[in-house]
């Protein structure tokens, strides 16, 4: 028996790419366009699939800036019913993000709270467990499959070498792995049409969470050989020869 679900799904707008700052020669994301975080996309997809199967509503929530509006519209175009944009995001700070989100959803009715297990820009994977802890609701993390039965949610979490099947009473917090599905891609026209769906914009409640300070960004150091292979036709042979030499074979 299917019961209509009330799903909240978090999505993050992240920079499309990292550029080299011409002044500092360090990495920068200034002026880089935003896109929907890859794993958030899977979370949105899974939320929509559950909604399509069980009925109910799926609401997208993002903590970001005005620039995230387009990303939210894309999620709405995929099939979310409404969006909430919380402004005030000022860089990677998982505990702050978690407390902002936890505070916001504590004022809402929901059965499932869904995340991508980690965002593709900062890769901390901390927000879902923090929110779970703050709200005192169970977490099924890094889920590769999900099923809702009555008032319980069943999920399979993927670890390095094995999977664990969990069951939790709803409301529950879920973070999904990228393998869980292939997200749908809305067309540009559908993204434009999504402007007609409700999108509320609000300012984040001031949070006094212990904050993590970002001191600076650098590119990872690597000792590169800097060998350039120019002849694409002989490329593979030449590369193989160099590799053999380096590996001492």
């Amino acid at each position: 028996m299917y019961v209509a679900l009330n799903i909240l799904v978090f999505l993050k707008a992240i920079p499309e790419d990292v550029k080299e700052d011409p002044r500092t020669h360090g990495p920068t994301v200034e002026g880089v366009k935003l896109k929907m975080d890859d794993i958030s996309r899977n979370a949105v997809e899974e939320a929509i699939r559950l909604k399509e199967k069980h009925g109910g509503r799926a609401t997208g929530i993002t903590f970001g800036s005005d620039a995230a509006t387009l990303v939210m519209k894309e999620a709405l175009a995929m099939g979310l019913d409404e969006g909430v944009l919380i402004k005030g995001y000022a860089g990677n700070n998982p505990s702050l993000t978690a407390s902002v989100l936890a505070e916001r959803v504590s004022r809402m009715q929901w059965d499932l709270l869904m995340f991508g297990f980690s965002s593709a820009d900062s890769y901390t994977a901390q927000v879902p467990p923090m929110v779970s802890y703050m709200l005192k609701r169970p977490l099924i993390g890094n889920a590769v499959s999900l099923r809702v039965e009555g008032k319980t949610v069943k999920g399979v979490s993927s670890y390095e070498d094995y999977n664990v099947a969990y069951e939790a009473e709803m409301p529950a917090v879920i973070s999904v792995a990228q393998e869980i599905n292939t997200p749908r891609i809305p067309t540009l026209l559908q993204i434009m049409a999504a402007s007609k769906k409700p999108l509320s914009v609000e300012q984040a409640q001031a949070q006094s969470a212990r904050t993590l300070q970002v001191l600076g960004h650098t590119f990872p150091m690597s000792q590169r050989k800097r060998i350039i292979f120019e002849d694409t036709n002989k490329g593979v042979e030449e590369v193989a020869a160099v590799l053999r030499q380096v590996l001492g074979k």
Binding site: M78, T182, P183, R184, I185, P186, T187, L189, Q190
Partner: peptide
């Protein structure tokens, strides 16, 4: 495409 039924390569 407008039914969003594309596999990962086309997407």
């Amino acid at each position: 495409t407008f039914g969003m039924k594309l596999d990962s390569k086309k997407s």
